[in-house]
Design a protein around this nucleic acid. Structure first.
Length: 274
DNA sequence: CGTAGACCCTGCGCGC
DNA sequence: TGCGCGCAGGGTCTAC
């Protein structure tokens, strides 16, 4: 479900409802996520704390709490984080829930259990192994083609894998990597060693533009993405190539192709992307 | 060192 | 209708 735009849409939708509320407890129904849920650590960090702010780093949602604790939530492929009335019965796959002083419940649901919920000291986030290796934020000031070009120096391999490498730049997953490459006219299998500075710049600008537009349109809802209030996104209407194998390229009209790269589907137009 | 592939897990849509 | 297969928005570990 979630790449950078979806997590950012979620953050914005939850923020006004969550900030100022207080976590009253932690309910863990299934601790077998990407990493085992540490119930005691979550309770110690969160119980009785007010929510101070919601932030995002890459595809991680960060819930800053009093006493310098931060809840870290990653949605994996199928995770959802929503606010529910406190009396609502647990949904299927509602693995972790946080009852709130307002009477509501923040619930984490994740059928595939590739997601993550943990607590860390706020000041230690950058040093934590989950974050220490992460690359630049594409929507931060200063991100440019030069950022990408420098990171690619001495590297090999296809540019699509490079764009999805969180050690380089965070936030682009399978959808937005394909879309940024399409907008930039860059073939997904082109080697990073063979891209001119001008084309790196086009690629960086395309990535920023596609992420920003996706956020503005509420994210991409292919199957089940919804923000914290349950609203679906609309960016899927604006997708140029992703999931459109065989359909007409919106630019040249020739059929969009799909091929598997590093185990993931890549969609592209062989005529427009070189 | 960097890259490719397997793997974690459940659910859905498709073709037979 | 039922069943098996392939596929799915992520990340990490291992083998080369």
């Amino acid at each position: 479900m979630p790449e950078l735009p979806e997590v950012e849409v979620l953050r914005r939708s939850l923020e006004p409802h969550l900030v100022g509320d207080r976590v009253e407890g932690v309910v863990v129904r299934h601790r077998g996520l990407r990493e085992p849920v540490d119930t005691r650590a979550l309770r110690r960090a969160a119980t009785g704390r007010r929510v101070l702010a919601l932030r995002r780093r890459g595809k991680y949602l960060l819930v800053d709490l009093e006493a310098a604790w931060t809840l870290v939530v990653h949605l994996g492929m199928s995770g959802r984080l929503t606010l529910a009335p406190g009396a609502a019965p647990p949904e299927p796959h509602e693995h972790v829930a946080f009852p709130l002083a307002s009477g509501r419940r923040l619930r984490f649901r994740d059928p595939r259990r590739f997601g993550l919920v943990l607590a860390l000291p706020t000041a230690a986030l950058d040093r934590d192994p989950h974050f220490a290796h992460l690359g630049v934020e594409p929507l931060a000031d200063g991100f440019s083609g030069e950022t990408l070009r420098r990171a690619a120096a001495g590297r090999r391999g296809p540019v699509k894998s490079f764009l999805m490498d969180a050690r380089v730049v965070v936030g682009a997953g399978n959808i937005y990597a394909s879309e940024a490459l399409f907008r930039a006219g860059v073939h997904p299998e082109r080697s990073v060693a063979r891209l001119s500075p001008a084309r790196w710049q086009r690629l960086a600008e395309s990535l920023v533009a596609v992420l920003a537009q996706a956020i503005a349109e509420g994210g991409t809802t292919l199957n089940d993405f919804a923000d914290g209030e349950g609203n679906a996104g609309e960016f899927q209407i604006s997708l140029g190539v992703y999931g459109r194998e065989g359909e007409e390229c919106p630019r040249c009209g020739r059929p969009v192709r799909r091929r598997v790269q590093a185990g993931r589907s890549t969609f592209y137009c062989p005529a427009c992307q070189r």
